[in-house]
Structures are given as structure tokens and as C-alpha cells.
Design a protein around this nucleic acid. Structure first.
Lengths: 330, 330
DNA sequence: CTGAAAGCGCTAACAC
DNA sequence: GTGTTAGCGCTTTCAG
């Protein structure tokens, strides 16, 4: 494994010169540069990044911290962030069972230049500590009170709101709300939007219309839930994940109900997933790749340019009217 | 940011002693240990991993190299590997647009202790180079000729074979083969198994029964392909991905054909995905998590114990008979 | 049992 | 322009 020293010897120059040439920093003669480059080439020299890190204090790798659930169910978040980050020359270390305190510890080991944090419970206290330890980071997805941290999030509240509003406009009053993974922030946000829209329209919220469920990962046939209990008047369903929505439609069909003839179904998710179902799923577009990419870009700018301006962005959501919704029949 | 030096000063001992105590290496008095630990605690000392790496020559991080497609479509591979690797104290850097040469370069930067490689084209030549640069690595999924590299793979050939055999036993002769992402090794393996089974049963392979497709990621409604062209006699379909199979079933239903009444459909994939569809999908179980976990374990053992015994394992596949297959009707 | 000292491979003043 | 030198923070002989 050739070191900078080997290159220096072969090129008959000092290691400092080699460093300068290879990093294109400082001054050096064009002629020496040639010699050095040749030597490096011949030796197949590749700089030791660890040594470089130790000296410069930056590692060129960023931590992508993500909740298990998101990693498995929305891998596009990682993939998108990866694209940006790798293109910018950063390595990406993925961590999944780690809290904010873990992040802090990680930062202090010095192996990370910054963090992209998705779907992690962020307690005020730990967040302060993270800010204080001076690391660059941006939070993906989960809203955060503090105004001095970077946040990129999808406006799930708005999503829940506009979807519900649409349904109400179509005459639906009893709207089943099916939440996959109720404990996740985004689910709660959608619900908030749902409740807000109901309230705004003077519709009384009813407990039994809330169907929690562990449907996506669950091994039980939980998705059939809610069918048997089709209350009188339940004419629409708002579901926090397209995949659940699709299962639900199957279940409804099986139970002899047609969509959207008998029941209207609206999902939540990425365009690509649900457009091709039959009937094409009416859904709320959640720009997850965009979120990840934007977050990555902000992080990189923060790191590279020491650009310490805090960016807080909320990505708009769109109601995608396809074919699983209709006016309330009766 | 407290360094080992700070701890040493506070504990009134030498740096060497601090190192010994904190790493529980070499000899030290129980009494000094107490003092040192207290000092470290009070300072909130966390060792700088970069410095440690530089000195010890191992970084505690392993590279997870995976093809884009797999990352997005089979995130369980990463998640499973991550579980094992993190539990063993390794960090995981994920890389996605990188070839074997890239891996070699990465190894030589010294920031990696080993590699888990999934879905990367492995040319004989680059593989040799990787072996020669002395890094620990295991290949996931794609078979490799060389017998001196660790490989954990799913026996897709067997999968294609047994599935086809089943269909033949049910009386099917014209079996449509729908391959998502034909260029991927595993697809090719399934096809090999399919062709082999046909051949073994003296069934002539027919060109038009092979339906390529970019269906999973494709934005077009490619999955409808093959329906209109239901040739006389096509009574079964073997599909390389459960998700495609499910779309296909929908499409078939829409076209007025019932599954398995008119057409038998068999997919490929993880249990959890397809069990809950209606009708439950007959499929071939591909133990992807197991593959990733096993690969990770082998890698860790290799690194930790310098256990240089090469492990080559092929994971068995199971035909899961559920409800989308039936005897050929006529 | 403990400390002094060398040095992992590299960068960045600082001299020349 | 180029070389010398001093470390980055840590581990690990080697003396004592």
C-alpha cells in the first residue's frame, strides 16, 4: 500500500510537494507536478482517507440516521439522499437503531461531518445537545419546534386536510380514517389534518371512524379490518399509505363492495406506486425523494460553505384525483 | 472536545495509562482504573475514532455495496445486514453507484474493514484485484465462479426449476415467463431454471413465451403486456417478482380472466409481500433477509477472527403453494 | 504497573 | 517553488 512518502521518494521531492500537487493546493512548478503525478500513477497511490481526516478534521462522510420502518418501507428516501451525497463526494453511513443521543456520541467520535436524520424521535433536550456539539445536520420529515435547526418536511397536515376536504365536498360525512403505524409523526399529522377539516366543516368526529392498524408490516390480515364494520353511512376511507389502500380495495371488492361505486378510497404515497392499479388510486402525493434530495443539498451546503443560515422548508402536497373516489351515492 | 490527553491530565496519569484502562488492555492497577474512568466520565470523553483507526489500521466500518435497483426494491437486504453489522459494532457505509474497481479504490483509502457486495457486476478481473488487495468481503446474491471468494446466494435456478416443474405437473405446457429487469443475474437464473425444466420434460421452448419488461419501475402500464396476446394454450405464467405478479393478476381480472380459473400465476418473492393478497399468491420464497444476515455474519467472522476459511453457501428456495395455481383446465 | 516516546499517513505553516 | 517540521489523537513497544 503506497503512501505519500513512497510517492515523494519516487518523484525525488518532499512529501509536502506531493501533497500540494495531488490536492492542487498552494504553488508548485508545472514540471514537478508532472513528475509527481507520474510517480503517483505508477505506484497506484491512493491517499489514506483516515490520515487525511485526522489532519483536516473532516471525514467526508455523513450519517444517514433513519427509523427502521422508513428504511424498509420508503427506501427511496435513502436512495435519493445517497444520489446527492455521493455525487458531492460524501460517503454515507446508515444507522438505524440509534437515537439523538447516539447521534451526538457519533459526532463526537469525529467520523462524521454531518447528519441527515429521518424518522427519529427528537426530544427537545437531545436536540439542544446536538446543536451545541456544533455538528451540521438536517432533520427530514418530522417537524421540530426549534427554529434554529434545518428541517425539510412534507406537509402531511395539509395532505390530511385537503384530502378530507375533497371527500367532504363530494358529500361524504362519515369518513373512515385508517392509520398505519399510528405512532409515527407523519401519521399523526395526517390525522390532525383530517380532524381539522372535519371540524372546519362542522362535522362531529366519531371515535369508531378511527382505525389504527399495523397493517403494512403486520402478518395478520389486519387490512380486512373495518370492512365487516362498515357502519351505516361510512362512504369513504382515508388511508395513510397507498399500499394499505390497495389491500383495502381488494378486501372491499371481495366483500362485494365496489370502489368507488360503493366506497370511496383515498391513499397517501408516492406517485409511482399507485398509478397503475385498477382502478388507479386517488391519492395524496408525498414528495419523499424531493424531501431527501433537498435535505441532502442543504446539508452539503452547510458543510461545504459553512453556510450557517438555517433552512426550514415544508414541501407542498398534491391531491391526485384518479379513479377511486366519487360522490357519495345516496 | 476532550482528548485522551485531557483525561490523562485530569487523572494525573500518562496518556498510555488512560488508553490501557479505557481499552482494558495490558495491565493497570484497579485503583488507577477508577481514577481514570472518573476523569473520562467527568470530561464526557469519547475517543476519536479517526485517530484510533489511523493507529490500529481498522476503521470499524464496512461498506455495503448494492445496486440501485435492489436498494429500492429489496431494502430488506440492507436492513437485515445492518442489524447484524451494527449489533457487532460495525458502522455501515452504503454505496450504490460503484463497481468492483470502485470497491478496490475504497479499500485502499483505508476507511473500510470489509465489504458486503450485492447485485454488482463482478468481472473476473476486478474480482481478482479485490482479492489481491487483501480485503475481507462477501458477495451477496450473484454467483461467482471463483472458489476463493465468499458467496451467499439464493438458489434462483432451483426456484425457476421447481416452479416450472410444478406447473408442468399441473398439465401446463405453454408457460409465459415474465421477467422484470432481464439484465439482472437473478432473473437470468430463474430463466435458466425455467428453460431447464421445460427441456427436461421435452417441452419445446418458444420465443414468444418470454416477456421481458421493466414493469416494476417502469412508468408505463407495461404490466398489461401479455394479456392481449394470450396465445392459444397459454395457461400459466411464471413471474420473477411477486409485485409484478399481483399487478398481472389485476390486469387479467380486468380482462375478464380469472386466476387461477383461467390462468395460473406463480410469482417470486418474500413471504410477507404476497401472502395477503386475494387470492393468496402462489410463489417461490426467496430468503433475502437470511441471505443478508448470513453474509454479514460471515464477513464479521472473517474480519474479527481473521478466519480466512472461504464460505460458499446457496440458500434453498421453497415453492409456496397458495391459491393462484391450478390444474390446466382443458 | 506506569511513563516516555515513536509513529500511523497526512496537511499546513513556516522557512528558505 | 520546495523542503523542513510540527502535529492531528491515538496505540503500543520498550524501559523502568
Amino acid at each position: 500500500m503506497a503512501t505519500i512518502r513512497d510517492v515523494a521518494i519516487r518523484a525525488s521531492v518532499s512529501i509536502a510537494t506531493v501533497s500540494r500537487v495531488l490536492n492542487n493546493k498552494g504553488k508548485y512548478a508545472a514540471r514537478t507536478a508532472k513528475i509527481v503525478q507520474k510517480a503517483a500513477e505508477e505506484l497506484g497511490y491512493i491517499p489514506n482517507l483516515t490520515a487525511k481526516s485526522l489532519k483536516t478534521g473532516s471525514s467526508g462522510t455523513i450519517a444517514f440516521v433513519i427509523h427502521d420502518y422508513f428504511l424498509v418501507n420508503y427506501p427511496i428516501i435513502l436512495a435519493s439522499a445517497l444520489n446527492i451525497l455521493n455525487a458531492q463526494g460524501f460517503g454515507v453511513e446508515v444507522l438505524t437503531h440509534i437515537g439523538l443521543e447516539g447521534c451526538i456520541r457519533l459526532v463526537r467520535t469525529g467520523k462524521i461531518d454531518g447528519l441527515l436524520i429521518a424518522g427519529i424521535k427528537n426530544e427537545e433536550h437531545a436536540l439542544s445537545a446536538l446543536v451545541n456539539c456544533g455538528s451540521h445536520f438536517v432533520i427530514l420529515g418530522d417537524g421540530v419546534e426549534r427554529e434554529d435547526v434545518n428541517v425539510v418536511e412534507v406537509d402531511y397536515f395539509q395532505g390530511g386536510y385537503i384530502a378530507t376536504q375533497h371527500l367532504i365536498n363530494l358529500g361524504h360525512q362519515s369518513i373512515l380514517f385508517i392509520e398505519d403505524n399510528p405512532q409515527l409523526t407523519f401519521t399523526q399529522e395526517i390525522k390532525r389534518g383530517y380532524l381539522f377539516a372535519l371540524d372546519e366543516n362542522g362535522i362531529q368526529y366519531k371515535e369508531h371512524l378511527l382505525v389504527p392498524g399495523d397493517m403494512l408490516q403486520g402478518e395478520q390480515e389486519g387490512y380486512r379490518f373495518g370492512i365487516g364494520e362498515k357502519e351505516a353511512g361510512v362512504s369513504a376511507m382515508l388511508i395513510t399509505d397507498d399500499r394499505i389502500a390497495i389491500k383495502m380495495i381488494r378486501a372491499l371488492n371481495e366483500g362485494g363492495q365496489s370502489v368507488p361505486g360503493d366506497v370511496t378510497v383515498v391513499g397517501f404515497g408516492d406517485l409511482s406506486v399507485s398509478r397503475y392499479f385498477d382502478p388507479p388510486l386517488t391519492s395524496v402525493e408525498t414528495p419523499l425523494s424531493q424531501m431527501a434530495e433537498l435535505g441532502a443539498e442543504i446539508l452539503v451546503n452547510n458543510i461545504k460553505r459553512k453556510d450557517s443560515i438555517v433552512k426550514r422548508v415544508k414541501l407542498m402536497v398534491r391531491f391526485i384525483a384518479r379513479e377511486t373516489h366519487a360522490k357519495r351515492s345516496t
